[in-house]
Deep mutational scan, measured.
Amino acid sequence: EETGVRVELAEEDDGEKIAIKLWLRIEDIKKLKGKYKDNEAIEFSFDLERDVPEDVAQEMVESGYVCEGDHKTMAKAIKDRVSLIKRK
């Protein structure tokens, strides 16, 4: 499903790190509610043992990086990427 958002690794995952750096990349602004630039990327750290995707997305909303209306879309994108990383 195309959401307009993609999360990718910002650094090589060696399988050892607990906290990883990720990029939340805006790919299609028409599919989102907030005002973003095409190909805008937000770099953030995610602790694989402690962080919760919904909470991280909420922090982005509170910091003004993400529109409240896009919270669920961002949280799902983060959750999907993190579950792929954890499965390795």
Results as ranks from 00 to 15, higher is better:
75 A>N: 06
12 E>D: 13
79 K>G: 11
73 T>L: 11
48 L>R: 02
81 R>N: 04
20 I>T: 10
27 E>L: 15
68 E>L: 04
50 R>K: 14
8 E>K: 07
64 G>T: 00
24 L>H: 06
17 K>I: 04
69 G>T: 13
3 T>I: 00
80 D>H: 11
69 G>M: 11
77 A>N: 03
24 L>F: 06
8 E>T: 13
74 M>Y: 05
54 E>G: 03
16 E>W: 00
18 I>R: 15
11 E>I: 01
29 I>F: 12
82 V>Y: 02
34 G>K: 09
42 I>W: 14
14 D>Q: 06
68 E>R: 09
55 D>I: 12
77 A>M: 13
55 D>K: 14
23 W>Q: 15
67 C>W: 09
61 V>P: 00
68 E>Y: 06
32 L>P: 08
20 I>W: 04
68 E>P: 13
44 F>I: 10
86 K>V: 02
63 S>M: 13
67 C>T: 07
66 V>M: 05
11 E>A: 03
59 E>V: 11
9 L>T: 06
29 I>T: 15
87 R>K: 12
35 K>Y: 06
36 Y>R: 04
35 K>F: 08
70 D>G: 02
7 V>W: 10
47 D>R: 00
41 A>V: 15
77 A>T: 04
84 L>W: 08
68 E>H: 07
86 K>M: 04
54 E>K: 00
34 G>M: 01
79 K>L: 07
35 K>D: 14
35 K>V: 11
20 I>R: 10
17 K>E: 10
45 S>F: 13
25 R>G: 07
67 C>V: 06
59 E>W: 12
58 Q>D: 05
33 K>V: 08
15 G>D: 10
46 F>Q: 00
85 I>M: 13
49 E>C: 07
48 L>N: 00
76 K>T: 09
52 V>Y: 08
32 L>D: 04
40 E>L: 12
64 G>C: 01
18 I>C: 14
75 A>K: 00
28 D>E: 04
34 G>E: 00
83 S>N: 14
23 W>I: 15
40 E>W: 13
28 D>M: 00
73 T>M: 10
11 E>D: 11
30 K>I: 06
52 V>S: 15
21 K>W: 00
54 E>N: 06
25 R>P: 14
57 A>H: 05
9 L>K: 00
50 R>T: 12
21 K>P: 04
18 I>M: 15
87 R>W: 06
59 E>K: 13
38 D>R: 13
29 I>K: 15
49 E>N: 11
86 K>C: 05
41 A>Y: 13
19 A>G: 10
14 D>W: 07
85 I>V: 07
33 K>S: 09
79 K>I: 03
76 K>Y: 00
46 F>G: 01
67 C>Y: 15
5 V>F: 15
46 F>D: 01
30 K>C: 09
68 E>C: 05
12 E>P: 14
62 E>V: 08
47 D>K: 06
83 S>T: 12
58 Q>E: 05
24 L>Q: 09
62 E>A: 11
40 E>T: 15
16 E>Y: 08
37 K>M: 09
22 L>N: 06
35 K>C: 12
21 K>A: 03
41 A>C: 15
14 D>N: 10
75 A>L: 09
9 L>D: 04
81 R>V: 04
84 L>I: 13
80 D>E: 14
52 V>K: 14
59 E>G: 11
78 I>T: 00
73 T>Q: 13
61 V>R: 01
44 F>E: 01
50 R>S: 12
69 G>V: 14
57 A>M: 03
31 K>D: 10
17 K>T: 09
74 M>D: 00
23 W>L: 15
15 G>N: 11
37 K>D: 09
